[in-house]
Design a protein around this nucleic acid. Structure first.
Length: 1105
RNA sequence: GCUCAGAUGGUGGAACUGGUAGACACGCAGGACUUAAAAUCCUGUUCCCGUAAACGGAGUGCGGGUUCGAUUCCCGCUCUGAGUACCA
């Protein structure tokens, strides 16, 4: 039979699933190997061709390791808490768990048909209670721990309490908040419970504190730094502002040094390590205290010095002014009455500057003088105290000592405000700019004069310590990570409040189940969505948990729909409408072009907020809503029906269209709409209270301050951030069903750490850093054995989209015609480019019939072609629906099969390289698999293999590929191994080889790449089904590759001219003699004598003339 | 600005420690089979000169250098992509 990939692939996928072929055991006598993929967030769009790239690579590696005799753990799961499902819930009322469930089903179907060897019995979902129980549990361990600098590890908070009770705060060296108290054991015991808890909170590894956060009003939540791009949220692009809020934080800074050092012990791509190093941002320097001058001291001051951090403490005698950040807490107290106006104006100006302006404008020098002075701690010199926005409140101490001779920003500042510039190094050149050099010796520097950088720095630090004005210090750029957001779809934080202080719930109460709520937005007073929960008010008692697990389904759906929106909700809704308008779907856009303005005779608005909903299109006058059901709506019919009912109540008529109806025949839809509009009477507006556009909006921004103070609720309302669940999931795979522990000790001890982790570099400073942090913590508390969780990491490159264009001819008035010009001819015509679906273009040649069928208005399209073909234009862009360049793996599998897709994705280029997707070469891989299939079959497609002894040439081909593929897999060069397979099969085809001895081994080594076809052939060869995955990998035997002769390339002055075949047994002298007298060589020498002959045995001969 | 990665035919890419540049595949051109198309197979395909072959010349972003020999190592530059950004 011909190669029937569809039947074969279906058959074996079923077989693997039925027989649990890839189930990993937690204990065997085989060596273990753990291959991990970054688990996906199951988005509504499903997989595109770029997603599986890394999964295919890891699958090849996992299968290869199995064949090499390893017990392989290769699991998959879903990072299923997150914003998109929640956004969708807000807009539609659909419960995020339902959306998530649907999306996971799609992912699973798509993953299954690619033939991955995942052990699905270990699947995890971060949003399932059985999983987040342990995320909450880890949170509790962090809450119960503090970081002991002495031991350089996390220790139980109980030990800290014991120490306080015995010795007070003396002798504790902890990573903790700045403003800890000093007390004796007796004083500690005299503290109230509340005072003790407040003090302990300053030490805990997860703690509450007021911090400046990135608040995104549109999303109603706090975002992590890596979720904010240029002052806008990464997801959705909404504006983000800085805001103070009580927030859960994780003391990741306690681990800064270990996170930095650990990088040297792991096999990760250098750029990725570099990103983490920069993110951690270690700088070694000193902190120095500048006493505040007597005359400017006043009663409001809480200290009598300004502390700065510097990496160039050696330049202290070059300090000519000190600068505070405008937000520095001492600014007000240090401003003299004469300068008050200046300073206040400057601060006001700075505040107004948006994040964006500040970034765009790094050149303008600005600042203001406080009127106060500080003293140089080493020579008592009087120094002006300024404020300026180039000093950041969030880094170091929010104050710098300015050395204009050595720092360019200080230099510009000094020039601008006419402050002194003092050179301090003899060879410094400060004519036009600062000179940060460390060469030379010091001048104008008191006791340092004549010393060099190294000696000078040591001397200054010694002196500062002697006078108590400073000490050596290491500073990190990394901040503690915010660990909470005011959202619904995440892990509830297992904490309740007493007297305004957090306490853990009892461990036996875990999991603390996410409660049901009626809608997914902050409350009117700005509290997080969890405040809406009516069946959830956690009380720390022995009563049964008040929040039993949800039974699923949409039973309470009706409750979601109210006829009027509350003002906060409505304001949010309008934000979403705005965003929706910017990103219309294809069908929406087509319809909008036909409806916009008053083309129908009535004013139509699109993406307009009504009640609790956003209508796709609406005529407010006639009360007609036009809804377009995209793909996702189909999953959602119940919810849509319910909202139709509510809208009817409000006096609206609803027309619903399928996406395809619009795409296929927009004219028909328009006619239906027009008829309806004419038919309908004017809407009865009394049914809805007030016009929605004029709804009063509460000014609340969702501030949480004091939320617990009035006792209105006693439980934590924020949920954990997206990175919580993904910071430990690789341990759950080791023992996914365990209900007593996050994973058993035996399982963790067996699998230890991930041997190979494959995923994108976009997680460099998020997931990959937080995971290392939690891993170190889990090790500290004795739960896991390894300091680093991911031994080796490979970044797969991003797959970009590759768009195709057609060129529509314009008429004299510049309007588009229905004629299209081929790409090579566009310079001769007036045309406008239009995206065309890449799936109807083959090697840049447009399929004319498919194009005519693509859109009804192109049915009569005419073409100006070149050489009888219509050639499309090409551009590399992001893969996106609106650019019609999304290539879906489903379509390719339908046409070529999973084995071809797997091999083609690898053949595309080096795994780590980003590249545009291009389907052009896929035929070549498909042909290769057919050719491979044909080796086992005769001309009539009958399975025929010979038991004859293989020839020397056949064995050579085989062993060449065995060696090559092994080398390639070990260095993750999958593209070259695919090429080698093609070479091997081409050679064996030329040799007409159908020997069992050869083909048996070929099937084994190809299995990781193309498992389905190999399983089929394996059984045809007479082996037992299912044994291939664990077959004996063939051993490379170099004896088969030994040659007696080598065809030496002969080059003259490095230019290759000819070849001479010689025996490999000859010595260098014999080779040289043979070459010198060879007729071909003599011909090239043309009578001249060679100056020198270089012989590299088995490689090359070079003749210098 | 800083840090990192990269630049090779019409295209994706190969050349692993300095040793025959362009493997493998796509595309293209020509041919076989066929009434025809598809499929399949064969041949050619870096560029320039040349009808073709032989032969010759140029050639791995640009300019230099080291070397018998450089896509590979060194110096300087250009461009592209990614990360980061007043970090004291």
């Amino acid at each position: 039979m011909d190669y029937q990939f569809k039947d074969i692939e279906k058959k074996w996928q079923q077989f693997w699933a039925d027989n649990h072929t890839f189930k990993a055991e937690n204990k065997t006598n085989k060596p273990k190997y753990y291959v991990l993929d970054m688990f996906p967030y199951p988005s509504g769009a499903g997989l595109h061709v770029g997603h599986p790239l890394g999964y295919i690579a890891s699958d090849i590696f996992a299968r290869y390791k199995r064949l090499k005799g390893f017990n392989v753990l290769h699991p998959m799961g879903y990072d299923s808490f997150g914003l998109p499902a929640e956004q969708y819930a807000i807009q539609t009322g659909q419960h995020p768990s339902v959306t998530t469930e649907d999306n996971i089903a799609t992912y699973r179907r798509q993953l299954d048909q690619i033939g991955f060897s995942f052990d699905w019995s270990r699947e995890v979902r971060t949003s399932s209670a059985g999983y987040y129980k342990w995320t909450q549990w880890i949170f509790m361990q962090l809450f119960n721990s503090w970081y002991n600098k002495e031991a350089d590890k996390a220790i139980s908070i109980a030990d800290l309490v014991a120490h306080f009770e015995n010795k007070g705060s003396a002798g504790i060296n902890a990573v903790c908040d700045e403003e800890i108290l000093s007390f004796t054991a007796d004083e500690w015991k005299a503290f109230t419970e509340q005072e003790q808890q407040a003090e302990l909170l300053k030490y805990r590894l997860t703690y509450l504190r007021e911090s400046t956060v990135n608040w995104c009003a549109a999303l109603g939540t706090v975002l992590a730094n890596d979720e904010v791009k240029d002052g806008f949220s990464e997801r959705g692009g909404y504006p983000v502002e800085q805001k103070k809020m009580m927030q859960w934080s994780m003391r990741i800074t306690a681990y800064a040094q270990r996170l930095l050092e650990g990088l040297d012990t792991i096999d990760w791509p250098e750029p990725l390590k570099e990103m983490q190093r920069n993110w951690i941002g270690k700088s070694v320097g000193a902190s120095v205290r500048f006493p505040i001058e007597q005359t400017t001291q006043n009663a409001q001051l809480t200290t009598n010095y300004i502390e700065v951090f510097t990496t160039r403490v050696d330049t202290i005698f070059g300090v000519t002014f000190v600068v505070l950040a405008p937000e520095h807490e001492l600014v007000a107290a240090l401003t003299t009455p004469e300068q008050k106006k200046d300073i206040e104006e400057y601060i006001a100006k700075t505040k107004k500057k948006s994040e964006l302006d500040r970034m765009a404008d790094t050149k303008t020098v600005s600042g203001a003088f406080t009127g106060s002075y500080v003293l140089n701690p080493l020579n008592g010199e009087k120094i002006q105290l300024w404020i300026a926005d180039y000093v950041l409140a969030g880094y170091g101490t929010g104050a710098v000592m300015a050395v204009p001779s050595g720092d360019q920003r200080d230099y510009l500042f000094a020039k601008h405000f006419n402050l002194p510039i003092v050179p301090i190094i003899d060879i410094q050149n400060i004519e036009t700019e600062a000179d940060p050099t460390k060469e030379g010796t010091y001048i104008n520097s008191d006791f340092m004069n004549g010393l060099d950088y190294k000696a000078g720095t040591a001397a200054v630090i010694a002196k500062l310590e002697e006078v108590g004005a400073g000490k050596a210090k290491v500073n990190f750029r990394m901040r503690d990570a915010v660990f909470g957001r005011q959202r619904y779809w995440g892990e509830p934080v297992p904490v309740y409040f007493k007297d305004g202080l957090p306490y853990l719930i009892d461990e036996s109460e875990l999991p603390l189940i996410l409660p049901e709520i009626d809608k997914y937005l902050p409350t009117e007073t700005g509290e997080p969505p969890l405040a809406r929960a009516t069946d959830w008010s956690y009380k720390p008692s022995n009563k049964p948990h008040p929040n039993p697990p949800r039974e699923g389904g949409l039973k309470e759906q009706d409750g979601i729909y109210r006829e009027t929106a509350d003002p906060v909700y409505y304001e949010q809704l309008k934000d979403f409408s705005r965003d929706n308008r910017k990103n219309p779907t294809e069908a929406e856009d087509i319809l909008w072009q036909l409806l916009r303005g008053e083309k129908t005779g009535y004013k139509i608005r699109r993406q307009h907020a009504i009640g609790q909903f956003i209508a796709d299109f609406v005529s407010l006058k006639k009360g007609l809503i036009i809804e377009l059901d995209g793909h996702h709506h189909k999953l959602n019919k119940e919810a849509d029906d319910a909202r139709t009912e509510v809208l009817n109540h409000l006096g609206f008529e609803i027309l619903r269209f399928d996406n395809d109806e619009i795409l296929d025949n927009p004219e028909k839809a328009i006619n239906t709409i027009k008829r309806k509009l004419d038919e309908l009477p004017e809407r009865d507006k009394t049914k809805i209270s007030g016009d929605q556009d004029e709804a009063k909006v509460s000014p609340s921004g969702g501030d949480l301050e004091g939320a617990d103070a009035d006792g209105s609720y006693a439980y934590e309302l924020s949920t954990m951030p997206g990175w919580a669940g993904s910071s430990w999931y690789w341990y759950r795979y080791m023992d996914a069903q365990n209900d007593a522990e996050f994973a058993s000790e035996e399982a963790i001890d067996y699998w230890k750490a991930v041997d190979l982790y494959i995923g994108g570099s976009e997680h460099a400073t998020g997931h990959l850093l937080y995971s290392r942090f939690w891993n170190k913590f889990l090790k500290d508390i004795g739960k896991t054995p390894e300091e680093e969780p991911f031994k080796k990491l490979i970044n797969q490159g991003m797959i970009q989209g590759r768009s195709n264009f057609v060129y529509r001819l314009s008429d004299e008035d510049g309007r588009g015609t229905n004629t299209f010009v081929s790409h090579g001819l566009i310079k001769d015509y007036k045309v406008s480019p239009l995206h065309v679906d890449v799936n109807i273009v083959d090697n840049e040649v447009l399929n004319l019939n498919k194009f005519k069928a693509w859109r009804p208005e192109y049915a009569d399209a005419e073409f100006i072609m070149e050489n009888g073909k219509y050639i499309c234009g090409v551009e590399v862009e992001k893969m996106s629906k609106s650019k019609y360049n999304v290539v879906n793996p489903d379509d390719l599998i339908e046409r070529y099969g999973a084995d071809t897709l797997r091999m083609y994705e690898m053949f595309l280029g080096p795994l780590e390289q980003s590249k545009p997707w291009n389907t052009n070469g896929i035929e070549g891989v498909f042909k290769f698999l057919r050719k491979f299939w044909r080796l086992f079959h005769d001309a009539d497609w009958n399975f025929t293999v010979s038991n004859a002894e293989p020839t020397k040439a056949e064995l050579k081909s085989l062993h060449k590929i065995i060696q090559k593929v092994e080398q390639d897999i070990e260095r993750f060069s999958f593209n070259t191994s695919v090429s080698s397979f093609m070479i091997a099969v081409n050679e064996l085809t030329d040799l007409k080889c159908n020997k069992r001895a050869i083909l048996h081994n070929m099937v084994i080594i190809l299995e990781p790449y193309a498992p389905h076809i190999c399983e089929e052939l394996w059984v045809l060869l007479g082996n037992e089904a299912g044994t291939l995955s664990y077959a004996q990998y063939p051993t490379f035997n170099p004896a088969y590759l030994v040659e007696d002769e080598f065809s030496y390339p002969i080059s003259f002055n490095g230019k290759m001219k000819t070849n001479v075949s010689l025996s490999l047994s000859l010595s260098n002298e014999e080779i040289e003699a043979a070459i010198r007298s060879h007729t071909d060589v003599l011909k090239y020498l043309d009578g001249k004598a060679p100056k020198k002959v270089i012989v590299v045995k088995g490689r090359i001969v070079n003749i210098v003339v």
